[in-house]
Write a protein that binds this DNA or RNA. Structure first.
Lengths: 338, 338
DNA sequence: GGAAGTCGTGTGAACGGTCACATCGCGGGG
DNA sequence: CCCCGCGATGTGACCGTTCACACGACTTCC
């Protein structure tokens, strides 16, 4: 009569064993208020005994709520995005949401569209975008996802959907620090032109230099890697017409320091260097790197808070940018008068 | 008559508009062979026109196939795991699977169990474990997940489920390199004792030292961070009774080099240092770090290949460990005879 | 020329939950 | 005393898809 089915127990199996109706079991699962404590306990016992697990697919089907938050991220093992993503995962899970993450390898329109398509096919309820390229943003606005979304970077154009560390302010802190140390010939090695953060940091550099009435020069467009910083350094240091460099991130700063060393220059004696991000290793570069710290965890947490607020009908969440912090270490020093 | 429903179009809507039955639409979606090309095209046109998306929940419900692979990972922004995870995501998506990732913050039994519970409640079809602590492994074996799984690290006990770079061999390469350079007093700074990789690398160190009949000493147990490498270095360098250090990863090596510099020692002049992992920055440390490279992408790809093989009934996949590669840079040199 | 097999398509049932509503016993107020 | 309200529980329908099976037309073969 009972052929030991391989099928997992369902709500009706539980109901039968507990001697109640399936609806009562459902009520227990969704802890409905009007249920007798002893009935609830009986049901819970059976659930425990048979190892019953509610079927998420069935639940999602009938409620048309997937309880999934989509994450669109660009393929990279960078410290910042990864840290934020971890925070997002934790916050989402705590709130009873699961995550569907998809990475896009290239930042073009088609790739973004494919990623978004994939996420929408999971019927996500909200979306977090950690893909910091301008083109991805354009694609997102154009495709007009039908769900609440936030981006972890800010173009400044869409304050209602962005949530970010104030990159421009961070860059200004860095450059101001160099100016305060007496530097006037300051170079900027930027990230790729189509990265939002690269653009914002470059703006910060230009603004601060202009306010101090210092000569700016065309920023060097890099690719965030230590390799680039190294080769750019080798090239740029042939003409030593600058005393300080503001690098778009810590990795490029590391590469630049490597180049300095190879060219027989000391940091900060000959060249002062500032990075951006404060990756955990930055404190142990030789010399320890002066840099700008961003709170990636806070960004991730807030992203989920904002989305949950919107899903819960409270759209007026805190969108104020987080201010970054200048961490002064040993890669910068007062300019020496020759 | 058509009150512009907010409801997303379903398969019957498409069928009605295309003038076919819903089953025909289903067949088109699952590209069944026996369907007339013009019928298929008609259906595809309607799908495109109304922006129809199959409901994954409904599909999962009826097929009882979630097409989801679970990933249990420990909360960290380390380069290796992140890189592997990216590869896993890509490989899984290409194979038509989605990922459900959950991170565990602490490596204890309860936390692992909770993470696994969470994943099982998503009715995952397979599992990848990137949580490299021994206790997590114990928990997994004990809980006996009911699905195919692989771990991205190897304890050596469960060759059928593991898939890894041969850490022991990597460590031996590193140590042999130091021995070949004439070093005999070689220190090992290990990762945390409960990490599988730390243990394996330590074994490699001990084996190679023993074979060369060199004196080993108790490895220093670190926490993978550059900070630890730094403070350990400051402490250890007070007694300069060694000429070389094999660090469990690149970050600790970086911290150790920092300490050397601070103590007035040069690398590799006074101390030779080898790291592990070959993170992208390692080539630009000062000096560039000699280290052991692991192919994290390959590991991730193979994990999915193995799981898909098992799901498809071909369980005899390639489990041979991947051999790591020694990258010799400038942080090691022949020992100087005083 | 009719039976058998193929191709293309349609119909009913099922997956495992939740929702809306019905039902039943019981206590209290008019 | 009866009816109303309420707390606790049960019943039917439905979410959107796939599966098993049925069915009609057309080809093929003896």
């Amino acid at each position: 009569m009972e052929p030991e089915k391989v099928r997992a127990p369902n709500i009706r199996d539980v109901a039968r064993l507990a001697g109640v109706s399936y609806q009562t079991v459902s009520r227990v699962l969704n802890d409905s208020p009007s249920i007798r404590p002893e009935t609830r306990q009986k049901v819970l016992d059976v659930i425990e005994a048979v190892g019953y697990r509610p079927n998420q697919a069935a639940r999602a089907l009938v409620t048309s709520r997937s309880r999934t938050i989509g994450v669109l991220t660009s393929q990279s093992a960078h410290y910042g995005p990864t840290t934020s993503l971890n925070a997002i995962e934790t916050a989402a899970r705590d709130a009873g949401y699961r995550l569907s993450v998809t990475t896009i390898s290239t930042a073009d329109y088609a790739s973004t569209r494919a990623g978004l398509d994939y996420l929408m096919s999971q019927s996500i309820e909200a979306l977090v975008v950690i893909a910091p390229q301008v083109r991805v943003f354009d694609a997102i606005h154009e495709l007009s996802v039908g769900v609440p979304f936030v981006t972890l970077e800010s173009t400044g154009r869409d304050p209602g959907h962005s949530l970010s560390v104030d990159q421009t302010e961070g860059a200004r802190l860095a450059v101001r620090h160099l100016i305060d140390l007496g530097h006037s010939e300051i170079l900027h090695i930027s990230g790729p032109q189509d990265w939002i953060e690269a653009e914002a940091r470059m703006q910060g550099y230009l603004q601060e230099m202009n306010e101090a009435e210092l000569r700016t020069r065309a920023p060097v467009l890099g690719d965030w890697t230590a390799h680039f910083g190294y080769y750019a350094g080798l090239e740029l240091l042939r003409f030593r017409d600058f005393t300080a460099v503001f690098c778009g991130n810590d990795q490029m700063a590391l590469g630049f320091m490597h180049a300095c060393r190879e060219m027989g220059l000391t940091v900060p004696g000959d060249i002062s260097i500032v990075g951006f991000d404060d990756i955990p290793e930055a404190a142990h570069f030789l010399p320890p790197l002066t840099t700008v710290r961003q709170n990636f965890v806070e960004i991730g947490r807030r992203a989920i808070a904002v989305l949950l607020g919107e899903l819960g009908g409270q759209p007026d969440q805190n969108h104020t940018p987080i201010t970054p912090e200048l961490i002064v270490r040993a890669s910068t020093s007062r300019v020496v008068v020759r």
